[in-house]
Amino acid sequence: MRLAAPRLLAAATLAAILSAPAARAASTPDEQARFLAGLPVPAGSPLAKLEEGASWKAHQKAMDDAWAKLSKRLAVMDGWAKAELAPRIQPNAKLLYLFGGPDAVTPLCLYPDAPAYLLAGLEKVGRVPPPEELKPKALENALSGLAEALRTVVPASFFRTDEMGHDLRGDEIDGVQPILYLFIARSGGKILGAEHIEIDATGAAKPKADGEKWGAGTPGVRVRFQREGHAPQEMIYVRVDLGDAALQKKPGFLTFARAYGNANAFLKAASFILHDNRFSKPRALLVEQSLSVLQDDSGLPFKVFEKGGWELTTFGTYLQPKPPFQRAYQKPLIKLFAAEPARPLPFKIGYRKDADESNLLLAVKKPATAAATAAPK
């Protein structure tokens, strides 16, 4: 028996070695997303060792704490969307979210069945190189910036472009792409693949090789992912100035967006930009392309819906906008919200600090209007 014990031990050790997942040389995009989101990676990932370090464990705690607070609002939004939004729209249509920046979490919550999401903003596209290849200090700075970006959006419910630039101005992992990774992973998504794209003057989105410099087109990133119970989905973020003058010089984005097809549209905390005639091109795009528009009062001016052709439903309370937007007060909205009366809105959104001050307007294009404004194929 004394001789058999070492043999049994050796056999058990060999079995454990053979059953353990083999370590890989490079992390996958999904593992990178989980790592940045503060979620554990598989044992065979080259990032597993990094998750044993003190800096990642501190990052995980910061992510867990911030997400726990955000999840409370998301749960309320999810219940509202199922009860009030989904029955009134085509929930399996694509989503167009201009001026949304890297805010992937809100459309994922409100429009979970969209096959594709198109987000646009002024924030840098950024990149996510394999974290295992970074120097410890660079990785620590990147994780710190991500945690701060998430802490910023939790109380405000929107990203501030200037703060985004400060939080994710890293030398390695920076910009919007890691934020998309974070939100998709935390929303239960598995990253299937990602690539940088550049939209040329004809509206064609051409893939960019890793490390390839941006050209004269509109830069962006496409992320493919899948959540339980859903077919594979994709999210595209493009960095674009949506002012008429800028779009005149770079018309490719408008062509690309029109080829995207009819979609639901979402707008919040949009700075009342679309009230300005210097933004007539994106305003026309939204009116033409949208099957429905869900927005707070900072989105499209109400006059575009007053012309008819839309079914209107109001939620929450309409109040005079706060400075510096108080001049964007829309008297017709006062009458509309009083006439309905508005349905309850159980969560805060946009620039308001409380749910009882927030508002949303849902405009659903009538079938005859949709046929008349359908974009040509």
Rank of each mutant, 00 (worst) to 15 (best):
I273Y: 13
K322P: 07
L336H: 06
P115W: 08
A26K: 14
K61S: 14
G53C: 04
Y181I: 01
C109R: 13
P301N: 08
G188T: 04
G188F: 01
Q90S: 15
L319R: 15
S19R: 15
I179N: 06
A259C: 12
R258D: 11
S271W: 03
L74H: 14
K206D: 10
V153Y: 01
P282T: 00
Q320W: 03
R34H: 10
G145D: 04
Y351P: 12
L294C: 06
W214C: 13
F183Q: 13
Y260Q: 09
G252V: 03
K281P: 10
E311V: 07
G350V: 06
H166F: 12
D162R: 14
A22M: 13
Q60N: 09
T13G: 13
L312R: 07
M164T: 08
E123C: 02
R88M: 02
H59M: 03
L319M: 12
R34W: 02
F325A: 04
L291V: 03
A20S: 15
Y97I: 05
K57T: 06
S290Q: 03
K353P: 12
K135P: 00
D78S: 14
D113M: 08
P178G: 11
V76I: 14
F225T: 03
L336F: 05
V364G: 08
G308S: 03
P129D: 00
S187Y: 00
P178N: 10
A284H: 12
K206N: 14
A4G: 11
V287G: 04
P324S: 07
Y111A: 13
M235Y: 00
K281E: 15
L50S: 00
Y97G: 08
D200K: 06
L286R: 10
V293T: 07
V176C: 04
T369W: 09
L134H: 06
F305N: 06
A75S: 11
A104M: 01
E163M: 11
L291P: 04
P131Y: 03
A25W: 12
S71N: 12
I184E: 05
E51H: 05
D200Y: 00
A372G: 14
A43H: 09
K365I: 09
L312F: 05
W56G: 10
G165A: 05
P332T: 01
S45R: 02
T317Q: 14
E198Q: 14
H59I: 04
D162C: 05
N277Y: 12
M63T: 07
A374Q: 15
